[in-house]
Design a binder for these strands. Structure first.
Lengths: 178, 178
DNA sequence: ATTTTTATTGTACACGTGTTCAATATATAT
DNA sequence: ATATATATTGAACACGTGTACAATAAAAAT
């Protein structure tokens, strides 16, 4: 099933792949599909789990390397842009205009939970609601860079992006305060 | 047409409204629909233009009030959260998991163009590509607050949100540098 | 008023959707 | 090996999609 989807994704965008088509490709009965999934997106979501797993590792790497002192971040510690470039084909799908928000939220929640851990574990929290907003602010800001990268057709080099992120974070760090 | 859509939106979510249904509601032929639109989203998008227009005014208000010196921002100058709450029903649709990214990007681009104007017009730019990333970072950060608000069911008060935004921006201002 | 242009309608078609149900196949247990 | 449970299949159904085309209606031009 997942193999059939990958095969079709090489030919046409996700949003144009129908359930009937997918079943023909996988030579299974359409009724059988409905016993396992409700829509094509659920198959894609399964595949995405692998990628999100890799994202987690890429994202937390600088936290390990700086021992959760993100102020000491160096450009070559950032691995998240490597990760996105490696799975570029998938991020192109996720950031596509026609694709439902669910995938974006999947990314958001993944990065957000890291952000939360790294802040809550190493800084004392004053008001937790306020923190929720701060974390979402910071999380989505990072995703803003990915959106911009996407719009530049992933042409900007990873080194440059790392440098931008460092610059932005240094101008603009909520961590100093805590 | 737009009226028919609004009427149906009171009964069921946007993603479940079919073209056939919309045409029945508006008592026009389905073929006629295809002469003007390609999908239900295009009708909704038309309606959104009104809201985006209001968003623009809400967003730029603090810039006028502080005469583009955003450092002097005061809580009661922020009107964007008033705006979102006023059109809460629509933002609930836009931030829905099943809805395509296109609406999110519409918001993103609207806010982004303001961010760009306000920065480019009042600060000297060094590298324009770097600036692109900074602007998208900042823009999406704001949208991160709206996502968080959405997830709290728009329960957080506007006053509190204004205060959060000020706090975040004061910790975290890219404008000081310029 | 009558022609010309443009918009809308009804009908049809091949395909997809989501569901149901009996029939068949496959796996698991005894 | 045989019975029992579980999975898959094929066929059918009412509905939606996108497209095509001739027929009719409405608007604009002469």
């Amino acid at each position: 099933m997942r193999l059939a989807l990958l095969s079709l994704l090489k030919q046409k965008p996700l949003e144009t792949i129908t359930i009937a088509e997918l079943c023909r490709e996988a030579t299974i009965n359409r009724g059988t599909f409905y016993l396992h999934y409700k829509e094509v997106h659920e198959v894609f979501k399964e595949y995405l789990e692998v990628i999100v797993e890799d994202l987690k590792q890429s994202y937390e790497e600088p936290y390990y390397k700086t021992n959760y002192h993100i102020q000491n971040l160096e450009a070559d510690m950032i691995k998240i842009f490597h990760h996105v470039k490696e799975y570029k084909d998938f991020y192109q799908i996720i950031f596509d205009e026609r694709i439902p928000m669910m995938y974006y939220y999947l990314l958001f929640d993944t990065i957000r939970s890291f952000m939360k851990e790294s802040i809550e574990g190493h800084f004392e929290l004053d008001q937790s609601i306020q923190l929720d907003y701060l974390i979402s602010y910071q999380t989505n800001a990072i995703l803003g860079i990915l959106i911009e990268w996407h719009r530049h057709g992933y042409a900007t080099s990873i080194q440059e992006l790392n440098q931008h992120l460092i610059t932005i974070l240094s101008i603009n760090s909520p961590f100093e305060k805590y």
